[in-house]
């Protein structure tokens, strides 16, 4: 529901990351990591990004989203696993003392940018 706000933050961070020495920079691709547990819908985010990036150096660029699976580790027995469903109970020892290792990411990894004409 807050994908437009997220898209605007991504655009701001990406624009700020363009090297100052590039002439007429044109961003071709933004590489983003989004955890499966993050409250973000990738398709909505892409739509919002496309709309919000108009008239910026990011217009027409590809927002590449790598979805990160939810992984967890049992504090009790050390077992780790990839959670297909949102169940945080250890499959081996039944403990609920579980650390989330991944799945909440919402990170910009890199931008791919070229000099324009």
């Amino acid at each position: 529901m807050h994908e437009m706000g997220i898209a605007l933050e991504i655009i701001k961070i990406a624009v700020d990351s363009i090297p100052a020495n590039l002439k007429n920079p044109k961003v071709e691709r933004i590489n983003l990591k989004v955890g499966k547990l993050a409250a973000v819908v990738p398709d909505s985010l892409k739509f919002c990004f496309e709309v919000a990036s108009k008239d910026t150096a990011l217009e027409g660029s590809l927002l590449h989203i790598e979805e990160i699976p939810v992984t967890a580790r049992c504090i009790n027995c050390g077992n780790s696993w990839t959670a297909i469903k949102p169940v945080f109970i250890c499959e081996k020892c039944d403990s609920g003392q579980v650390d989330l290792l991944s799945g909440r990411e919402l990170d910009i990894v890199s931008i791919e940018v070229e000099e324009g004409a």
């Binding site: 990351s17 090297p19 983003l32 919402l106 990170d107 910009i108 990894v109 890199s110």
Partner: peptide, 13 residues
Amino acid sequence: MEVKVVKKVLSVN
């Protein structure tokens, strides 16, 4: 060219 950013989108918040 690829520019590494590695930043949380919600870092301002």
